[in-house]
Design a protein around this nucleic acid. Sequence first.
DNA 1: ATTTTATGTCAGCCTTGTTGACATTCCAAG
DNA 2: CTTGGAATGTCAACAAGGCTGACATAAAAT
Lengths: 167, 167
Amino acid sequence: MSDRQGTQGETLLYLTDEQLRQGAEAMFFAYRAFTADPDRILGGQGYGRAHHRALHFIHGAPGTTVNNLLSILGVTKQSLNRVLRSLVEDGLVESRVGRIDKRERHLFLTEAGEALERELTAAQHARLRAAFRQAGPEAVAGFRKVLESMMDPDLRRQYQKLKEGRG
Amino acid sequence: MSDRQGTQGETLLYLTDEQLRQGAEAMFFAYRAFTADPDRILGGQGYGRAHHRALHFIHGAPGTTVNNLLSILGVTKQSLNRVLRSLVEDGLVESRVGRIDKRERHLFLTEAGEALERELTAAQHARLRAAFRQAGPEAVAGFRKVLESMMDPDLRRQYQKLKEGRG
DNA sequence: ATTTTATGTCAGCCTTGTTGACATTCCAAG
DNA sequence: CTTGGAATGTCAACAAGGCTGACATAAAAT
């Protein structure tokens, strides 16, 4: 029971309350760092994290509907609507009525919207790139593996679908 | 140049825009899952994520001052004050005026506060434990390594200090 | 003793989540 | 064809939790 290298030892080791606590705190601090740069960029202009998320996913799936975006973002349509309205008013997003189903709105980034999305992504990717490089490829693989395991099955499916859609 | 195992090949491989994008989305989805259980528990009783964070760190460092808590949480004192006030009013946190420096307030969880903290921690740890177990020890090491690399030096120091304080 | 600094509290604003009410469009049953 | 329900999106009002500014009190410095 004292083999710190053995399978049993490690299994017990990394699941102690202290290990879990450290994992939780790491998530908290890292997520703050992860969102810090885009938050700073958006802070000045009356936008926030919600606008970043909308820009990100519209960029990744141009022509997506409001309803589809909702299922990805996991917020209510009323909440998303406020964000989209300001983005449309400011000319960053274009909302076109669906041709086959006129109830739907298809969303696209304008050139200005693409430009802001690029700026936000650049900041976030710079940080991520530095962290990935410093940690090394194996650590990155582990990072992804743990994050995926942490998601609910529904969220994981959404995440996988986004990946495959671009793969 | 075609060695997918070589340092060069891997370095290029995991730093493509697509890899970074997937990393960012993994963070987004995983963080949502990470906070989902405590959010659900707290939702009913007029509390939120901010209360959870306060309970968590007061539990981990009983007697901490408001100012110290601020530097850990990274919010303004006005924002934290609102949260603390409701926790004190509801008898979950006790705030004692400092004996040596009467400007300071030292914070402690009451028995009820400890009980709620345990409930929240239990939910979050259950999810984390399942993810860690599924991903395996090496993945968990990588997960921690990447998250730490992602933090700003200041945040990383805070995080390390918390770990060592309990180590 | 008076000024400056540190700590915490109160008031008010903004973003972004929530529910409720509603308009429009589509589709299916009568 | 029409009518009633379901799906989609919008508008209004409210709550949580960020923020800045103004302020009270205690400690420290001059």
